[in-house]
Design a protein around this nucleic acid. Sequence first.
DNA 1: ACCAACCGTCTACATCTGTAGCCGACATCG
DNA 2: CGATGTCGGCTACAGATGTAGACGGTTGGT
Lengths: 132, 132
Amino acid sequence: MPPETNDRPTAAEWKVLKIVYELGSCAAREVVEQAQESDGWSASTVKTLLRRLVDKGHLKARRIGTSFLYRPSRPIHTELRSSADALLERATEGAMGPLLQYLVKRSQLSDEELDQLQELIDRQRQEGRSDG
Amino acid sequence: MPPETNDRPTAAEWKVLKIVYELGSCAAREVVEQAQESDGWSASTVKTLLRRLVDKGHLKARRIGTSFLYRPSRPIHTELRSSADALLERATEGAMGPLLQYLVKRSQLSDEELDQLQELIDRQRQEGRSDG
DNA sequence: ACCAACCGTCTACATCTGTAGCCGACATCG
DNA sequence: CGATGTCGGCTACAGATGTAGACGGTTGGT
């Protein structure tokens, strides 16, 4: 099993990575179009970023005739957790509470998601009690 | 008022920035000590990072005799929100729910923080209803 | 068979990052 | 006053990043 590279995507790479996540499985051209619209990048730029993402292991490229079909190597949750970890490392004692409030506010969660978060919070209270 | 530079701290810079946040207001030497312990960085490296953080506007340096007293330019929440924004930009539709669960789990919030988050969630439900 | 459109590859290059050595100024201990 | 330790400043430099042009192969039309 080719090891999951752990080199994180850079900011620019994340933009195209996100596009691929949204498109699912796609050709370079589709990504180029999207990126051109949203960021004004040239085709070359996008192609370079796609290549680097493949090199780093975030994308898989499957050859189809003359071109490639790109798709994410891992579920987006895995990638996002990696970004989230950076946040956890940066937060000082007591900073996560307010930060999470900020995130929840801006996330516009659905009722269902709010319910799930709610349940998790209840569970956390339990654990907190029994844990010290 | 000198404008808040919007150049975000890099990963390495964040490490020393965090140390300064934890120490409050401190001399370079204290930061160097901490960083040496936690990351094995040379004094030079830490000094470079401090300087860059000052250049970018994340730290203020006040001259005290021959040396400097460093302190954060803004509350850590402001800096963290900036990092959090990156996360929000990266998340695709429906990805924030699970991601927030992950963050809440790893954050080990206090009962008080859990209560506040809870309240916020309740408020969010209200808004969601009236908002569509 | 030829030309246009398209595709991925190679190359380029200014900047930014990570990491650190060396130096001169000042201070501190004798 | 001289030796020694500190401190910030300057310089360095390899590797990562952001951004893109040029090129050669292929394909689809005519």
